[in-house]
Simulated assay, not measured.
Amino acid sequence: MGSSLQEARALADIGLPVTFSIIPGLRHDREVADFAAQSGIETMIHIPMQSKGWPQRRLEANGLLLAMDEAAIREHMGDYALRIPRALGVNNHMGSEFTEHEDKMRAVLGVLKGRGLFFVDSVTTPRTVGLRLAREMGVKAGKRNVFLDNEQDGAYIRGQLAQAVRLAKRNGAAIAICHPHPATIATLAEALPPLAGQGITLVPVSRLVR
Score class of each variant (00 low, 15 high):
residue 102 E to K: 11
residue 136 E to H: 09
residue 133 L to Q: 05
residue 144 R to K: 14
residue 130 G to N: 04
residue 166 R to H: 12
residue 8 A to C: 02
residue 87 A to P: 01
residue 59 L to R: 04
residue 177 I to H: 01
residue 79 D to F: 12
residue 149 D to H: 02
residue 86 R to Y: 08
residue 114 G to A: 05
residue 37 A to T: 09
residue 70 E to V: 07
residue 198 Q to T: 02
residue 94 M to Y: 04
residue 51 S to L: 04
residue 145 N to I: 00
residue 132 R to C: 06
residue 6 Q to E: 14
residue 17 P to G: 06
residue 149 D to V: 03
residue 147 F to M: 09
residue 190 E to F: 07
residue 29 D to L: 06
residue 53 G to Q: 10
residue 193 P to E: 08
residue 85 P to E: 09
residue 172 G to H: 04
residue 146 V to R: 02
residue 153 D to Q: 12
residue 80 Y to A: 06
residue 14 I to F: 06
residue 125 T to Q: 11
residue 124 T to D: 13
residue 68 M to T: 04
residue 52 K to W: 12
residue 198 Q to D: 07
residue 62 N to F: 06
residue 65 L to R: 10
residue 104 K to V: 10
residue 58 R to H: 13
residue 108 V to A: 08
residue 16 L to R: 08
residue 36 A to Y: 05
residue 178 C to H: 10
residue 117 L to N: 06
residue 117 L to W: 14
residue 186 A to R: 12
residue 77 M to F: 04
residue 29 D to E: 11
residue 99 T to K: 06
residue 48 P to A: 00
residue 35 F to M: 14
residue 106 R to Q: 11
residue 31 E to C: 08
residue 127 R to I: 02
residue 42 E to T: 08
residue 12 A to I: 15
residue 102 E to I: 04
residue 183 A to Y: 00
residue 3 S to L: 13
residue 185 I to Q: 08
residue 49 M to I: 15
residue 88 L to P: 01
residue 142 G to T: 05
residue 183 A to Q: 10
residue 147 F to N: 03
residue 161 L to K: 00
residue 181 H to S: 14
residue 162 A to M: 12
residue 34 D to Q: 14
residue 103 D to V: 12
residue 8 A to T: 03
residue 176 A to Q: 05
residue 103 D to G: 03
residue 205 V to W: 02
residue 197 G to W: 01
residue 32 V to I: 07
residue 127 R to V: 09
residue 92 N to C: 07
residue 116 G to I: 01
residue 100 E to V: 13
residue 113 K to E: 14
residue 157 I to G: 00
residue 145 N to F: 01
residue 21 S to R: 01
residue 64 L to Y: 08
residue 6 Q to D: 15
residue 45 I to C: 03
residue 118 F to G: 13
residue 18 V to S: 03
residue 95 G to N: 07
residue 46 H to G: 11
residue 86 R to I: 05
residue 52 K to N: 15
residue 67 A to M: 07
residue 113 K to P: 07
residue 162 A to P: 05
residue 183 A to T: 15
residue 107 A to R: 01
residue 155 A to F: 03
residue 90 V to F: 06
residue 66 L to Y: 08
residue 101 H to F: 13
residue 121 D to I: 10
residue 45 I to H: 00
residue 59 L to S: 09
residue 35 F to W: 15
residue 67 A to V: 13
residue 208 L to V: 11
residue 74 R to N: 14
residue 4 S to Y: 13
residue 4 S to L: 10
residue 179 H to C: 12
residue 109 L to I: 15
residue 96 S to C: 08
residue 123 V to G: 04
residue 26 L to Y: 11
residue 26 L to S: 06
residue 200 I to Q: 02
residue 69 D to Q: 10
residue 30 R to W: 02
residue 125 T to H: 13
residue 126 P to V: 14
residue 183 A to H: 01
residue 114 G to W: 08
residue 8 A to K: 00
residue 14 I to C: 04
residue 210 R to M: 09
residue 64 L to E: 04
residue 182 P to T: 09
residue 13 D to W: 02
residue 91 N to E: 05
residue 117 L to R: 05
residue 161 L to G: 03
residue 31 E to A: 14
residue 10 A to I: 07
residue 53 G to T: 11
residue 149 D to L: 06
residue 36 A to E: 15
